[in-house]
């Protein structure tokens, strides 16, 4: 059946080409930046420009801000956390959580959540920067102290990497891709976090995450960490091509079996089949 054979080899070739193109698609995007960025230019400038939530603006007037915060709290938070932030059956107390915690939870879109769930996931923030600032102000007015929103400055990449390996890599992974914990809890990937959010999470310890107060990590060390985490999300670190989700050797094994061995066996089938068989 040579005709059938021919058609089949065309199909094989088409699949092959498709796979190679698909393989190429990932790194092709990476191919855009300069091949060998000079070492000096590698220091990111990200943390130097703090995002909007870092410096809560005073707003048109403090009074208006306070009213807005109270109103937002009453509409979105009070049903679970209680009118005075004392907590209820459905949500924990907010007294003493601190501005960093509120800014982190609301700024990463984890709060407000429609339903109770074990671990809220990152999402698009519901509120604007001004609204978040007002909300933070209102919740801190419940009292109790707690860590404030950290100021992040430009840090050292090298120190940040060492601190990351010692303190963050166990849960979030050396690549920052996140990992599973017990009982359905996850350490989320870090690629979307802004420097300030990273710093807030370090100081607050949301969910099961341990806290790292100033006795454990100084402000400068937190800045170093935030700098490194910013760098970690950079695609320039995937120098080798498509990172396969940075999931590690098993993902590589799947690629080896499905893509590579698939291509090789297809080639063997094409080369080794006897004419007319």
């Amino acid at each position: 059946m040579p005709t059938r054979g021919d058609r089949w080899s065309h199909v094989t070739r088409a699949v092959t080409v498709g796979m190679v193109v698909a393989l190429a698609a990932g790194p092709a995007a990476l191919a855009a930046p300069a091949p060998n960025a000079p070492p000096g230019s590698n220091a990111p400038s990200g943390p130097a420009a703090p995002p909007e939530t870092a410096a809560p603006s005073a707003g048109p007037s403090a009074l208006a801000g306070a009213t807005q915060g109270r109103e937002l709290y009453r509409q979105n938070c009070a049903s679970c956390h209680g009118d005075q932030g004392r907590g209820s059956q459905r949500g924990p107390s907010l007294v003493g959580v601190g501005a960093a915690s509120v800014d982190f939870q609301v700024g990463t879109g984890r709060m407000p959540i429609p339903d109770e769930m074990q671990q809220p996931r990152r999402g698009r923030p519901v509120f604007s920067a001004d609204e978040i600032a007002a909300l933070v102000e209102h919740v801190t007015s419940f009292g109790g102290g707690g860590p404030g929103i950290p100021r992040v400055t430009e840090g050292s990449l090298g120190t940040g990497r060492e601190l990351f390996a010692a303190n963050c890599a166990p849960c979030h992974g050396g690549t920052g891709a996140g990992a599973a914990l017990t009982n359905g809890w996850n350490a989320p990937p870090l690629y979307e976090a802004t420097p300030v959010q990273v710093a807030e999470a370090i100081r607050v310890g949301p969910g099961l995450m341990p806290v790292f107060p100033s006795q454990v990590l100084t402000d400068q060390q937190v800045s170093d960490l935030a700098t490194y985490v910013q760098r970690l999300r950079s695609e320039r670190l995937d120098r080798g091509g498509n990172p396969l989700g940075r999931l590690g050797p098993l993902a590589e094994g799947v690629a080896a079996w499905v893509v590579a061995l698939g291509l090789l066996v297809a080639a063997a089938r094409w080369l080794g089949r006897r004419a007319g068989e």
Binding site: P170, C171, A179, L181, T182, W185, A187, G205, L208, M209, P210, V211
Partner: peptide, 16 residues
């Protein structure tokens, strides 16, 4: 392996 994964509040450490 180092049991570095500390789940605050539950008092548990987890091995990666």
């Amino acid at each position: 392996c180092p049991v570095r994964l500390y789940l605050k509040g539950t008092g548990r450490v987890l091995c990666p």
